[in-house]
Amino acid sequence: MQTWNSKFGREARTALMSSVLVVFGFMLACSADFALAKGSPNGAQAGKSDRWIHVRVLNKEAKGETVRVNVPLDLAEKVLPTINHRNFHNGRVTLGGQVHDVDLRALLEAVRSSRDGEFVTVNNNQNDVRVAKQGSYLVVHVQGHGDERAHRAHRVEVRMPLTVVNALLSGSKDELDLVAGLRALSTQPDVELVTVEDGHNSVRVWLDSKNATD
């Protein structure tokens, strides 16, 4: 009886220890795998300062909504070439001639090759428009006149680094290379790209290294 018990005890202990070792080893392997899977993104973020483009839209009405979008440039640069829709293919927009009677590419070419200073000023009853090349930036300023409640009074400020303009024009004649533009933008310092204000809404687009809006 004692022999049987000791034999059973020995076998049970062996089986138990084997099972525990197998399970423990498996758990260790899985936890290492899990830690690796979780660790890799953190490792990637630690060694690289990602550039983020932020969009914030504020509606100033009583129940107005706020929209905040934060997109890493790296992500946009990789996702854009996968989108094919209408005149947008492989991260490039085909202009197909003129946009609202304006030859956009010719306009950007003219800006790029011009000297510093104000070179387009339009003043009329509705808007004051000023386009200038200031240092390494293309600056567009639009000031609308009129009743704020009728959304006519508005202010638009665009500040675009010229290296980005150059990159946009780096493709063939009738297209804008948005991916190249984003790549160029990712090398730029923090910059306020677009500001739009009217009586009811405020839109802001800017570039920085933070992964959240203020």
Binding site: S40, P41, T66, N70, L75, N211, A212
Partner: peptide
Amino acid sequence: GRLADAELVRI
């Protein structure tokens, strides 16, 4: 998956 945690869209 490679990037830091972030709030991508908030409305």
